[in-house]
């Protein structure tokens, strides 16, 4: 079991990390939540290993953990101060990452799962709890916006 998990960890960790970074917008926060998600996968490996896409399980576990209460509760004090839809202050990782961060959350999630993790829209939809057709719409819009922004950046 330990060897099988170790192999899965080695093979998947970078893509999982990139998918989570694309969604949460901070490499430091992604490191924490991805580590926790892999720990949960290890603890539950007998069932996670049977998952059709264990790496998707880890990404979703990481994103769920990132949303956990005591992080969210901080936001209760400045009442009405909600999580921004897009991420305004990206880590310094280049224009493509910055352009992804500027997308709405659902579009970032669709790109994270379908492009960086290479899930199909059915698998991504199942992971996110939304319809595959909705994933395809967000993915299409996100990639279209990215293409335009990167083209604009290249021309200026």
């Amino acid at each position: 079991m330990a060897e099988e998990f170790a192999s899965f960890y080695r093979d998947s960790r970078d893509n999982v990390f990139r998918a989570v970074v694309a969604t949460v917008g901070s490499t430091a926060e992604a490191e924490e939540v991805v580590a926790e998600a892999y720990a949960r996968a290890f603890a539950n490996w007998s069932s996670v290993a049977r998952h059709p896409k264990p790496e998707a399980w880890v990404v979703v576990a990481a994103l769920n953990y990132q949303r956990s209460t005591w992080r969210k509760l901080r936001r209760l004090v400045p009442m009405g101060d909600h999580e921004p839809e897009s991420l305004a202050a990206p880590d310094p990782s280049g224009p493509t990452v910055s352009a992804v961060y500027a997308l709405p959350r659902r579009q970032r999630q669709a790109i994270a799962l379908c492009v960086l993790l290479e899930l199909d829209s059915e698998e991504a939809g199942e992971a996110l709890g939304i319809a595959a057709s909705t994933v395809r719409v967000h993915l299409h819009r996100g990639l279209e916006t990215l293409r335009n922004r990167l083209d604009e950046g290249a021309q200026s």
Binding site: Y9, V16, F17, R18, T27, T96
Partner: peptide
């Protein structure tokens, strides 16, 4: 282009640090 943009990002935690977190996770 997106994949290349994220390629410089690597998850550096070693396996032992992951499995050692397991107690709290459980």
């Amino acid at each position: 282009v997106v994949r290349e943009g994220f390629e410089p990002l690597h998850f550096e935690s070693d396996l032992a640090s992951i499995t050692n977190r397991n107690q709290g996770s459980a």
